[in-house]
Design a protein around this nucleic acid. Sequence first.
DNA 1: TATGCGTGGAT
DNA 2: TATCCAAGCAT
Length: 358
Amino acid sequence: MIDKTLQNFDIFKFQANLINWYHANKRDLPWRKDQDPYKVWVSEIMLQQTKVDTVIPYFQRFITKYPTLQDLADADQQDVLKTWEGLGYYSRARNLQNAVREVVSAYGSKVPANPKELGALKGVGPYTQGAILSIAFNQPEPAVDGNVMRVLSRVLKIEEDIAQPKVKKHFERYTKKMISDEDPSAFNQGIMELGALVCTPKSPMCMLCPVQEQCRAFEEGVEQELPIKSKAKKQKTIPYVALLIRNEKNQYVIEKRSETGLLANMWQFPMVPIDEIGMDHIENWVEMEYGVQVDLGNKLGKLKHVFSHLIWQLDIIEATTGSVQVTDKRVELVDKNRLADYPFPVSHQKMMKYMREE
DNA sequence: TATGCGTGGAT
DNA sequence: TATCCAAGCAT
C-alpha cells in the first residue's frame, strides 16, 4: 500500500525542494531562536489546535514568567492557569506542568531525548513527541499534524478521511519513509510551514509551491478537493442564568470549577442550568448550591460561549446579597478589583464588563 | 474508535 | 450568520 503510493515518487527531490524552501522562507518565530528542548516543548503544546499568531504573545509571557523547567515546576497551578487564560484547552497547561515536574524529579531536569520516556509524559502525544525529537534533538521522527496530512494528501493524492484516527497512522508511515535524515527538523517544520503559508485549506497558492512539480493533486487539478475530511456533528446548546452576585462591600460570589472536565480548576460566576431549575426556583437553588441568599435584580445582557462540542447561552442577571459567610471551599466572595487574580474562561471575563456598582 | 476538550480568525 | 479551521491529547 505504502510502497505503491511512494512508487515513482522521488523522495530525495521532495526533501531538497522542501528544505531549501523552508530555510529561505521560514518565519522568524520566538520559539525558533534556539533549540532549548523546554521552549520547543512549551511552544508545541501551545500550538496544538491553535494558530501561530494567537500563540506568540502567550509564549513570550509564559517563557518570561517561567524561563526554565524548574521555574514552571515550582509555580502554583492557579498562576499557570492565569498565564494560560484565554488560550483554551486548559488541560494542556495542567498536563504540561505535571509533566515538567516529572522531568525535574525523574530525569534530572533534562527533557528525555527518546520516544518512550518522552511519549509517556502527560500531554505529549505522537505529534508532540515527534516534534520535540526532531526539532530539539535532530532525530528523524515523524510529526504528523493537520498540515502534514493536508500537504501529503495533496502531493501523494491520498483520498482517505483524515478525520479518522487510523488514517493519521497511515501518514506517519509515509512520513517515516520520506523524512530527511540530514535535517529532520527542517523537513518536519518545512511541511508544516508549507501547509500554513502556501498549501492552505482553501485557495492554496500552488504557483508559489516548491513541490508543485511533484504534486499529484495539482497535476490533476484536484487540490481543492483534498484532503477528504468528514464533518463533525454540531454542538448542543445549553441555556444558563449567570449571576453577578454583589454585596454592599462590592464583593462578588465566584466558584472554582471541578478539577476534572470542562474548564477544570478555572473560576466562574454562579451559573444556573435554567432548563433543569426553572426561573421560579433560582433563589432556592442558589442558596442550596452556594449557601448564599440572593435578591435577583435586572437582566444585564446575554452572552454566547461556543466550545468545540457545546454552546453555553448565558443570560446575565444581577443579584444582591447581605454580608454572608461563605463556607464551601470552592466558593469565594471576592473584591471586584481582585477578580483579575483568578483564571476565568473568556465568557466570564466578558461578564465582568456588565458589572455595575450601586 | 468516538467523544470531550477553548478560542478567535478567515471566509 | 454559519461553518470551518489551527503545530492534538486523553480516555
